[in-house]
């Protein structure tokens, strides 16, 4: 170990040496690294090994890459993949746009009751899965509150088959996800907006820029890192989407499909079913989990690229 002055700024203390610098560096991260190695890294490696086996409960068979080949023929998997991507492509942009819009409005100092609006719109983010799925399932039942309301204001003439029809079931889940997470993302945007100096907007106004132009030319570019951050966390969240589909798709008394015609089956739910609902095949389930990892990695990479190139 010789001098590496770029990495180690000389903070002016005489006894301060490189080895001390590293010692403290490693020490500070040691606890987290220890915990993560034990409870993250070990399980990850262990399940990678597991993915080379096909299993029926305790009975295992080594298949090498056989599970990956099986994937390509597995229609259920392909359907789950398709459903998951639909959720990702439709719901994530709508939610992020909505969050951005609300944040922009709430950042305007002329709007009254900003604190109240902010609190109320964020509130859904504090509810637990159990809470919100129980509430939503009841509200979106055929004769539930939502249909009653829409019928009363004459927006529809027959009740919408929210959780009965494959198409509407997806819509319902998207509505629920939007309800739960818009406020959460909004807080991040709002925080980001507070770091943008008001003078920029004032100057733009003087130059005659309208609200849309201000939004497109100032807000979005300056918020880009945060938008990227929320996009990536939402991507991870959506590709691991599990809670909503399983809880909304209580298909009657004994159904094993997730939503009508498996319309709500996502990859994460399929993994769960392969482990716990069907004959347990943990090896195959682990294989699919790594497919999620690969997809998330690709999508994150693409998002990084998109954000970078527009600069």
């Amino acid at each position: 170990m010789t001098e590496k002055p770029i990495k180690m700024p000389n903070y002016g203390r005489p006894r301060w040496t490189l080895s001390r610098y590293h010692r403290y560096g490693w020490f500070f991260i040691s606890f987290a690294v220890l915990v993560l190695a034990l409870f993250m890294l070990y399980p990850i490696i262990s399940s990678l090994i597991m993915s080379t086996y096909s299993s029926r409960g305790m009975i295992q068979r080594f298949v090498g890459l056989g599970n990956y080949q099986r994937l390509l023929k597995d229609r259920v998997f392909l359907q789950a993949l398709k459903n998951t991507l639909i959720f990702f492509i439709v719901q994530v942009p709508i939610m992020l746009l909505l969050a951005l819009l609300i944040a922009t409005l709430l950042n305007n100092k002329d709007i009254k009751f900003r604190g109240l609006f902010r609190t109320g719109i964020f509130l859904p983010a504090v509810t637990s899965l159990v809470t919100y799925s129980t509430l939503f399932k009841m509200m979106f039942s055929l004769e539930g509150l939502v249909n009653k309301f829409l019928l009363n204001i004459k927006l529809i003439s027959t009740p919408i088959p929210w959780l009965v029809d494959p198409f509407w079931a997806k819509i319902t889940v998207m509505i629920a996800m939007t309800w739960r997470w818009t406020g959460y993302n909004m807080i991040f945007y709002l925080s980001g907006l507070q770091n943008i100096p008001d003078e920029l907007y004032e100057a733009a106004k003087i130059d005659g820029a309208n609200a849309y132009q201000q939004f497109a030319r100032i807000t979005v570019p300056l918020l880009k890192p945060i938008i990227l951050f929320t996009a990536i966390t939402s991507t991870i969240g959506t590709l691991q989407l599990f809670d909503e589909p399983t809880n909304f798709a209580s298909g009657g008394v004994t159904a094993a499909t997730i939503g009508p015609g498996n319309s709500l089956l996502t990859i994460a739910v399929y993994i769960y079913n392969l482990c716990f609902k069907y004959m347990p095949n943990f090896g195959y389930a682990a294989t699919i989990a790594y497919v999620i990892v690969i997809i998330v990695a690709i999508l994150s990479f693409v998002q990084f690229k998109l954000a970078g190139e527009r600069r």
């Binding site: 409870f39 890294l41 993994i271 389930a285 990892v293």
Partner: peptide
């Protein structure tokens, strides 16, 4: 940071063994 991408369901069984 990369470990965030691994779905929890995949880790459950080894974690339980631990």
């Amino acid at each position: 940071l990369l470990t965030m991408m691994v779905p929890f369901a995949a880790l459950m069984i080894p974690l339980f063994r631990l």
